[in-house]
Amino acid sequence: MSADVEMIQVYIMGRPYKVPQGLTIMKAMEHAGYRLIRGVGCRGGFCGACATVYRRPGDYKLYADLACQATAEDGMYIAQIPSVPADRAPWVLTELDRNTNPILALYPEVARCVACNTCTRACPQELEVMDYIQAALRGDISQVAELSFDCVQCGLCAVRCPAEIVHYHVGQLARRVHGAYRAPQAAHLADRVREVEDGSFEQALDTLQKMSKDELVEAYKKRDVER
C-alpha cells in the first residue's frame, strides 16, 4: 500500500475500519479482512447477490445499493444483507390461467401496498418498483414485466417494504407470464424449434460428441463469433 493513498474510516457491521478511499463497499469489506462467501457474486452489478444498506454521517436516510457498485465513503455505516428471507409462491407456468391475473391469487399481499414508494427509493437498479406493484394490482401484467425487466432480484425492495410485499418475486412471475403468453412470439424461435425437431442438427451434435476434449477446445477457439 503506497503511502499517498488517502484512508477513510468506515463502520462495517458496527466495527470501525480504515480502508483506502475509492474502493467499492465490497472491496472495502475485503480490505478490512472480510472473506465473502455469501452476499457476493458477479462483482459486476448483474447478479444481485450483494445487497447492502448504509447510512452516511449526519444523514437520516437509509440508503440501499449493491456492495460491488457503491463506493465506500468516509464515515459510512455499512451492513450486508447476504440473504433476504422471502417466500416464493409455488406456481407452474403452464398451469396458470392465462386469461386472469394470477398475481393477486399468488401474492395477495400486493393489495396491501400503500403507494409509499419506499421500494422505488431502495432499488439499486433505479426501477419504478412501486409503479410495477401498482400495475400488478390492476392486473397489467405486461406493464409489470416491462417495468421490472432490469431487476437483479437483490431483494432490497422487499427488505424495506412496510406492506411486506416481495416485489421481485411478483416481477419475476409477471415476466414469465408475459413472456409465455402476452409478448409477441418470435418467429425465428419457432423456426429453430422446428429445425431441431426435424433433426437438422443431429449430425453436427454427433460430430461434437465424438470429439476429444482437446479437439473440442480447438473447435471452440476457432468458432465463428458473431460480431
Binding site: 390461467d97 391475473n101 393477486l104 393489495a111 394490482l137 392486473g139
Partner: peptide, 14 residues
C-alpha cells in the same frame, strides 16, 4: 380474506 378466489375486485382485496 379468501384471496385465493380469482377475479375478486381489487377494491375488495385492498
Amino acid at each position: 380474506a379468501d384471496v385465493a378466489t380469482m377475479g375478486l375486485p381489487q377494491i375488495a382485496l385492498v
